[in-house]
């Protein structure tokens, strides 16, 4: 894209940072309220209903831990992609984003297997309040993982050609937030029994 045709929102810098980065932080701020409300409600019920402990015993801590490791590793790739983009190395940044994408894919595959197993054992969305929270929180998080993967694939396509490298950092910030949410979901859903 030529300099004159470049959208003003891409080049403008308000609030002391590029508009794109500012927008991502606003998205994250709204996400904190969404996930915060959900997790806050879960904590209230968890602390006041003993039956949650018995239901939580049906989750597998090691599967949750594996997925935590997968997301942490994908976050490492995302931030290495950001570093590569700042060094002007688009192909390397794209490669890192593809690896991050792979991490998201593994996470979703594990989640699919885990959910299939739970459903086959009769633990469905409506079987108990705990599992209502479990599927809602983990499902909402999984939707964010899918959204991040789609955006990441698009960003990687342009980064590969050394274009729009600033976007690598933006999708990275979003991905780290998705990782951060899981960091709290893991102990809440898998450890506290």
């Amino acid at each position: 894209m030529s300099a004159s045709a470049r959208p003003i929102a891409t080049t403008r810098s308000t609030a002391g940072m590029p508009t794109g980065r500012l927008a991502v932080w606003w998205v994250i701020a709204s996400e904190i309220v969404i996930f915060g409300g959900l997790l806050g409600s879960y904590i209230m019920f968890r602390l006041s209903h003993d039956s949650f402990a018995a239901e939580a015993a049906n989750t597998n801590m090691y599967v949750g831990a594996f997925n935590t490791w997968v997301l942490l590793t994908s976050s490492l790739f995302a931030v290495l992609g950001h570093k590569a983009a700042e060094e002007g190395n688009g192909p390397k940044a794209a490669k890192m984003l593809y690896l991050t994408f792979g991490g998201g894919l593994i996470f979703l595959l594990v989640k699919t297997w885990e959910w299939s197993e739970k459903i086959s054992h009769g633990h469905t969305l409506s079987s108990s309040t705990f599992f209502s929270f479990y599927y809602t929180a983990a499902g909402l998080h999984a939707l964010h993982v899918i959204a991040g993967m789609v955006i990441m694939a698009i960003v990687a396509q342009t980064a590969k050609r050394n274009l729009e490298l600033h976007r690598v950092e933006l999708i990275g910030i979003y991905w780290h937030f998705v990782d951060l949410v899981w960091i709290f979901l893991f102990p809440l859903l898998y450890i506290a029994k």
Partner: peptide
Amino acid sequence: MSLHDHAPSHAHEEGHGDGHATHHPNYVK
């Protein structure tokens, strides 16, 4: 903050619209 009326000239500048390079710690550590 002023408006930049032209596109950043290369990838490195694109990443730092606020004019500051990100400090990259040892991420693997």
